[in-house]
Amino acid sequence: MSRENLVLKVKPEWCKGCGICVHFCPKNVLELDEDNKIVIARPDDCIKCGLCELRCPDFAIYLEGDENEDEK
């Protein structure tokens, strides 16, 4: 699947707020909310590089095809 068809998704209930994805995002797309959970603050800036997914220890952020809309 080409990267253009991928969508960045989060699973906040698994997020522990370590901030690794926020730190390593090259486009500053991500933020932590007041509960220290991940939010995609600027989804339009996302280049779908996958660095957040690569180093998320909690499997809480990932790229997936947009047709698969299960339990987001």
Partner: peptide
């Protein structure tokens, strides 16, 4: 992974989840 067992018990920021991935 056994999805019913997640989220895992490792501390916030622990690298072990990255290795398991």
């Amino acid at each position: 992974l056994r999805n019913d067992k997640l989220a895992h018990m490792w501390c916030p920021g622990c690298g072990h989840g990255i290795i398991m991935h």
